[in-house]
Design a protein around this nucleic acid. Structure first.
Lengths: 352, 352
DNA sequence: AATTGGCACTCTATAAGTGTGAGTGCTAGC
DNA sequence: GCTAGCACTCACACTTATAGAGTGCCAATT
């Protein structure tokens, strides 16, 4: 029995792991440092507090738990959480009734796909009581379905771009002369034939090529059409890229009580860039990913965790959805919720 | 000199008013109860604290100021604020440079009118360091310009509604059969001829009439067209109706430090209904309106004030814009900012 | 060798007491 | 009508005391 506690190998005895899990479970429950007495009662094993203390000391040496001060209980560290998440946590499936609730909620007559994503976000936040977030399908991965131009008055043209996800973008373009309806229709026809079914980044590239060609041939109409198309494609690019819901839920958590941090977080939610950047990393990961705020120096998210899963359209992962909440969150519940939501969302998006 | 202090008439002596103004100015400055000594120094008059105390006692009897506890200075009451705002406050015009800043900011190449409103909201919040809010033009007041239908695949039609404000709404409709492009064009043509230039509530009414007529004549195509139009018109109705920016600025204010209240406020911002209802009251008021949170039992806004002005399109007041912040705000500055922004926004909207 | 009881020690959180300063109200005098 | 003076009040900051939770370590037990 001369195993574990070996030099620098992070081998943690079976029993110690059990205690770590018990501690984290408890800490997640009531958010206060867990003492040896409490823990002794929590685990099924009939051990005295003193024994637990010894084990805790070992865990502390390994950097898995720490105490805020000498006479307080123990609190999991980031690495403690990591171990918990990676190997200790066993998530069971969501209850059928809950799955159904999510499904009906998402099915409910959403016509527009951006409505759908927004309601997925709201759903996530509602079910978990934390902040829900859904990235819109990445432009590069979505495919072009259709473009149309409508003449308005006074040298203005309304350009409409439809993606295969059902997203619609429109933009009013100012042109240097009036266009006839037929002209615009022709232009749209051409563009639709050339580009339908291509992914947006290909579309953008080919748009440029064709534009050069058309210029070379002094083809005015075509040049104009391509320019207009380029404009609306680029505009669709810069649109807001994720939907966040239920931010205010985060105000309830004691660990985020500091106005200052909370404000920074909320500002990031409005700005969205950073959040998006963060989520994009998980774009191509399979299954549920968990990210603990401190892990990557994002001090913005210190005290927070992000639980994500990506969703698909046409077998291709196009977006990420998830939940942002305090690191001390109920993962057992949140993980399956995120997982199921991603799957259902993919299913709903597919058949539309 | 047996004037003021008369029975129930709220006659406040010239001098007392002067002190009230000085007190509020000071209170707005540093947010703490103002004592007689401080006030004595603040006013130009060379009076002793004791004299001031007497006057303050009078003001307190009139309910214009109050002290949090016996040995604290005085704080304005709601009625005190009201008097201050109604008759004591003199706002001077904004500096030319600031006006220019607002103008350029709003002019800056916004194509889309909803972009424009959003950036007005951001502008308001940026300049005042509080929350900015702009209601979208009221549907009933905006006029119908154009509607178009585009055939998508699989019995779906994209309906596009353009208003005279430049707003564009679109919606994917599911129909019970496929439509030819020409059919849809005819339908759109008809609708455009019949409704262009009418206000949206008229459009909705007449849509219903025509629908009945068409049903009576068993005119299938027309019925379908009118139904589709009705659908997109109604959808445009239910869209989110105001743009709020810079909410997080409110987190800085000590009087809103209570998480609980702040959360309710933020929730109201996301929900928007209540805010909208509040702002709609000022729709037709001329010039800058100021609303003190407590005044109307909206406990949601207790501790807050709302400064608004309405903006116009085609000589008609269609929307409201303004700023939400703590009652203890710098009105001298905020009022002209709101005023000017409303005027410039109207101007920008006009010539588009 | 693992477990346990006992004990001294540490540190927090809470309450209770203490001064100090800002500010008031009142009264008498200018 | 204004002011100086004075007694009084109250919040706030500071100190001190106390209780409680929990630890670490050691010696005893199994």
């Amino acid at each position: 029995m001369a195993e574990n506690k070996s030099v620098s190998e992070t081998v943690v005895s079976e029993r110690a792991q059990h205690f770590l899990k018990a501690l984290i479970d408890r800490y997640i429950r009531d958010g206060q440092p867990v003492g040896s007495r409490t823990l002794a009662k929590d685990t099924g094993l009939d051990l005295s507090p003193a024994t637990i203390r010894n084990v805790m000391a070992d865990l502390e040496d390994l950097g898995l738990v720490s105490s805020p001060h000498t006479s307080a209980g123990r609190v999991p560290t980031i690495t403690g959480y990591r171990m918990f998440l990676d190997s200790l946590l066993i998530v069971q499936d969501l209850k059928k009734s809950e799955v159904d609730k999510i499904r009906t909620e998402l099915m409910m007559g959403r016509e527009d796909s951006s409505d759908l994503l927004a309601s997925a976000s709201r759903l996530l936040s509602g079910v978990t009581q934390m902040a829900g977030v859904v990235t819109l399908p990445r432009r590069e991965k979505t495919t072009f379905r259709q473009i149309e131009f409508l003449p308005l008055s006074d040298r203005r043209v309304l350009a409409i771009l439809v993606m295969d996800t059902g997203e619609v973008h429109n933009r009013i373009l100012h042109t240097h002369r009036d266009f006839e309806r037929v002209e615009l229709e022709q232009a749209a026809n051409f563009l639709n034939h050339s580009f339908a079914g291509y992914e947006m980044d290909q579309v953008r590239q080919r748009l440029l090529q064709e534009l050069n060609d058309a210029r070379d041939h002094f083809d005015q109409v075509m040049t104009q059409a391509l320019t207009m198309a380029g404009e609306v494609v680029n505009a669709s690019e810069s649109k807001e890229d994720c939907v966040i819901a239920g931010q205010t839920n985060l105000m309830e958590f004691a660990e985020l009580a500091e106005m200052d941090q909370l404000r920074k977080l909320f500002d990031a939610f409005t700005e969205k860039r950073e959040i998006l950047h963060l989520l994009d990393q998980f774009q191509n990961a399979d299954g549920v990913q968990i990210f603990i705020g401190e892990e990557s120096g994002y001090q913005l998210l210190s005290g927070c965790s992000v639980v994500t899963a990506s969703y698909q359209v046409n077998e291709e992962m196009v977006g990420v959805l998830g939940v942002i909440g305090p690191t001390r969150m109920n993962y057992e519940r949140v993980i399956p919720v995120v997982d199921v939501t991603a799957k259902i969302l993919s299913a709903v998006l597919k058949k539309h």
